[in-house]
Amino acid sequence: MKKIFTLLVAAFSATTMMAQMQGAKKFVGASTMQVSNVNLSNASDTVSFVMNDMTSGDITLPEMKGMLTIPSFTIKGATFSMGSNHVVEFANQQFTSTVNVNGAEKTITGTSLTGTYNMADNSFSLTAVFKYGAMPMPMTYNVKGYYVNGVSGAISVNVGGMFTYDNSSVTYSVRKYKEANVEKLDVEVPYYTLDNTIMGNLGLGKYVVKGLVYDESKGGFYRDYTNDGLTFHFTAEKEGTKTMDADYTFNSEKPNNILVKYNGSTVEQIVNTFQIGAMPFGIVSTFGNSATGINGVHVANKHNDGKMYNLAGQRVGNDYKGIVIVNGKKYIKK
């Protein structure tokens, strides 16, 4: 009976592992590179891992820049075994790989490769010792990254609490990791477009918010990034003419924060609240389930309430002169 139970646990672990490792997985984190007495560090490298079966996979290391540039290369068929607590272990092994540099093929000869993939905290650690081409000294490359999860879906963007616009397909990249035993998130807000807004066709550039931590009162991972020094590119185009095309900061006197909610291990919702520079209105972008915990984002579209608004979405009175919007239509008021 005990043997059957052990086999069932092993089978379940294998199934769980295969489910988690479908396709290429990307891990982002800090790395170091050592050659002789020279040590170089990189705060952000990307490593890819493709699981071929239950005992081997392909690992792609990034381009490494030091005394010379070593192109990105793939270690094919790296062998591993399942350790305790869902930790995939790469026992010490040799490897070879080849790269093409300006039409010439160079060989990478690896004397040692060790590492782990911890499915509990989504971390991937690797140490590779190798020689590149005819270089006389071996190089030691260390990296520890955390899984970057790409989540795709529709967003709804509310401007100034009055106008709501949609984009049916955007992809956020979410990286979960631990720092001093505190679980954190980094979120890459993607570039996306909004068409036919009151300002024309808009393009909102991407940026990365780092260090979200779990906030029980908000039910998700949260960060106020007002003072993080972030910038992003913003464009507005009307009737074929760009009216705005520059990098902008966030208004330090207005709310600028992001909230990521999970349902189990799945990102359920991302709510990003921000205000761009001196622009007079705030923006709330909602990805995923917009009905949960964000009452007021999808308020009734007030541009159909019979009142007058200017092109910035602000309510104006009868003495206002210029272009106004009433019930979603533009008029010139003299």
Rank of each mutant, 00 (worst) to 15 (best):
Y262Q: 11
V170P: 07
D166P: 05
T98Q: 15
V326Y: 06
L204W: 07
V143K: 08
I198Y: 04
L259G: 02
E188Q: 11
M308N: 07
L40K: 05
K333F: 03
V187T: 04
N327H: 07
V174A: 11
K330Q: 15
A278L: 13
K3N: 15
E268L: 14
G264K: 11
M135S: 03
F49E: 00
F124A: 01
T74K: 01
V99W: 01
N102H: 14
D228G: 06
D45I: 01
V143M: 14
Y141F: 15
M18K: 15
V324G: 06
P136M: 12
V260H: 00
H233Q: 00
L194E: 09
N304F: 15
T46R: 06
T98H: 02
F281H: 10
S152Q: 14
D305L: 08
D247I: 02
N251Q: 08
P190F: 12
Y222F: 15
S31P: 05
H298M: 08
I4F: 10
V189Y: 03
V213N: 13
A19C: 14
N318D: 14
I270D: 00
V88P: 00
G133T: 04
G203F: 00
V174L: 02
L8Q: 15
N201K: 07
S36F: 15
A154M: 06
A19Q: 07
Q314N: 14
G205H: 07
T286C: 01
N289V: 06
T55Q: 13
K131M: 08
R315S: 10
T226Q: 11
I155L: 05
L204Y: 05
D45C: 06
S84L: 09
S169K: 10
M18H: 14
V101W: 06
S84M: 13
F234H: 04
S41A: 10
K206C: 14
G293Q: 02
F95I: 06
M162D: 05
F12P: 03
V208Q: 11
Y191C: 12
T79G: 07
A120K: 13
S156P: 05
M21E: 07
Q20H: 13
K329L: 12
Y117A: 01
G240T: 02
D58R: 04
H298L: 11
T60Y: 04
A291G: 11
G77N: 10
A312D: 14
V88L: 09
M137T: 13
L311P: 08
G328A: 05
T114K: 13
T55K: 08
V28L: 10
T96G: 13
L194C: 12
L7I: 06
V38W: 08
M21F: 09
N196I: 01
G205F: 03
P280G: 02
A246P: 03
R223C: 01
Y262T: 09
K184N: 08
G264P: 04
Y146D: 04
L230N: 13
N39V: 13
I332K: 12
G296A: 05
G110H: 00
S36M: 12
T193M: 15
